[in-house]
Nucleic acid binder design. Structure first.
Lengths: 157, 157
DNA sequence: TTGTAACAAATGTTGTTACATATATAAATA
DNA sequence: TATTTATATATGTAACAACATTTGTTACAA
């Protein structure tokens, strides 16, 4: 179904670029809704899930809160409290850094790894069941999205 | 810049589709942050802005709250309170429907139209300054996103 | 060395969102 | 007609997020 039909738009988009902007946002929200539904039974928010994935991707190298924020898809200012929740659940450990007592080392625990593995097996069906699109097309999509995020040099946002 | 660099990922994505999922979400958040920054001086949230655009797209035909929800990019359950805020600002009118006293007619006011026009002129620079990508590529991007949102018939999310 | 600035994280506050529930009305059915 | 069910919106509540501020620590310059 095309975007115009899905959002029941009457006026056409004023440009392909405007449509692409809306299309990216709409698709993202669509993915969010699906993921959210899948994560709900695990009592884990998407942001918590993403932090867990970031830590898992570190191969046991601890990272700081600021580094987590850097790597997050949505640069939330609440990483500190997100980590809190993961600590309470036992999925994450947070220790004061030895070299810098302001910063802290955050690392995923074995329990966190197991939990994530369990979730991933459930979520992988999501990947299988969406996207009527070939490997070549996925490659193109990824490249176009990367290009789409370029800003003009003089722009100041 | 590629996605992997932007989110400083160490492990590669396990599939092009997984990368595409993250890429769409990341790009959407990127767009959100830019739009948010541009709308901030107007004291208007993105959701309020979107509702205003939906109403403006109606060519003076009133629509109900449910129809607004239908057309929204993020199907929030708070359309009622969003309309509240726009009514307070004088950008929108809400009347009880004559044919159905449960429902209501929501319509944009002249003030709302003027306000939107003013904002749009500011936001159009956003469109001009992002996306290093041709018209043909935008067409491809839009089609790929539409295809990406397809679900397998048997899937139940 | 002392004072100031910069930094990393945590926290307070305010507003928003999601979800469940309530209210009011309309439609359907017995 | 009376009762049940469905519909459209509104609202209460708890969790969450954004933003600003605070706390504790480090760096650096006078």
């Amino acid at each position: 179904m095309t975007l115009e039909n899905e959002i029941k738009q009457i006026k056409p988009f004023s440009s392909k670029k405007e449509k692409a902007i809306v299309n990216v946002i709409f698709t993202s929200n669509w993915l969010f809704a699906i993921q959210n539904k899948l994560l709900k039974p695990f009592d884990l928010s998407i942001q918590q899930y993403n932090v867990l994935r970031i830590l898992n991707g570190q191969n046991d190298n601890p990272i700081t809160i600021n580094q987590i924020i850097d790597r997050m898809l949505d640069k939330t200012s609440n990483a500190s409290r997100l980590v809190d929740k993961l600590v309470i659940k036992g999925f994450v450990r947070r220790d004061q850094k030895e070299t810098n007592r302001r910063a802290c080392d955050v690392v995923i625990t074995e329990l966190g790894k197991k939990f994530l593995l369990n979730i991933k097996s459930k979520l992988s069906t999501l990947e299988d069941e969406i996207g009527d699109i070939s490997e070549e097309e996925l490659e193109v999509l990824n490249n176009l999205l990367d290009a789409f995020r370029k800003k003009a040099n003089y722009s100041n946002f």
